[in-house]
Amino acid sequence: MEIDQPLAYAFASWASAGPGTAAPVSDPALCVPLAEPGRLSVRVQGADGAAVPGAHVWAIGTGATAQTMTGPDGEAELILAADTPATVKALYVRPAGDYWPLRLDDPRLRNGAEMTVELTALSETFEGFPERELLRFSG
């Protein structure tokens, strides 16, 4: 391997074309980072406006997926190495507890804007939760 030559994966059909010849197909695992990574600020909260700390947040883009966790204030900042907020195709939030996870497809994000994600509490779905049993097994 020469230090000044790019790495190439040689398929048998084009390997004889010579060094430096680009592959005829793109590598779906290849992530081309941006010169200046995009940034996405997200606030995760419940319906009452209370912050949701410790939630995992994923931004699924066209170039790569970014992941982080919310802090005690429910705030998170994602560094988008191969995307901009405009190219994010989905946002997925998985809270540590007490709330349902949420996936937002095609969130239509703008550069520099902060996104607020409101989660539904489990107690809104199940009356009396968590004090009341949801399921009882008789034995």
Rank of each mutant, 00 (worst) to 15 (best):
S123V: 06
S16L: 11
E124W: 12
L80R: 01
V88Q: 01
V44F: 00
Y92H: 09
G18H: 07
Y99H: 14
A10C: 09
A17S: 10
L40T: 01
E75P: 04
A23N: 14
L135R: 14
E124L: 06
T87P: 00
T70M: 08
D105E: 15
S41Y: 10
I3H: 10
V88M: 03
H56Y: 13
Q45P: 01
P28G: 03
T125E: 06
I3N: 09
T116N: 05
G18V: 00
D105R: 08
D83V: 10
A113F: 03
A90F: 03
V44D: 00
P101K: 00
V93Q: 01
V52A: 00
A15M: 05
L78A: 07
W100Y: 14
V52Q: 00
I79H: 07
G97H: 02
Q5F: 05
P130L: 06
A12C: 07
R39P: 11
Q45A: 04
A90D: 09
A82I: 13
A29D: 12
G18D: 03
W100G: 11
G139A: 12
R39H: 13
F129W: 15
Y92N: 08
E77W: 09
D83W: 13
A96Y: 03
E127L: 15
T65S: 12
T116G: 04
N111S: 14
P72Q: 13
F126V: 08
W58R: 06
L134K: 02
S123Q: 06
V117C: 04
P28M: 09
L119W: 11
P53H: 02
G49D: 10
G46Y: 04
T70W: 02
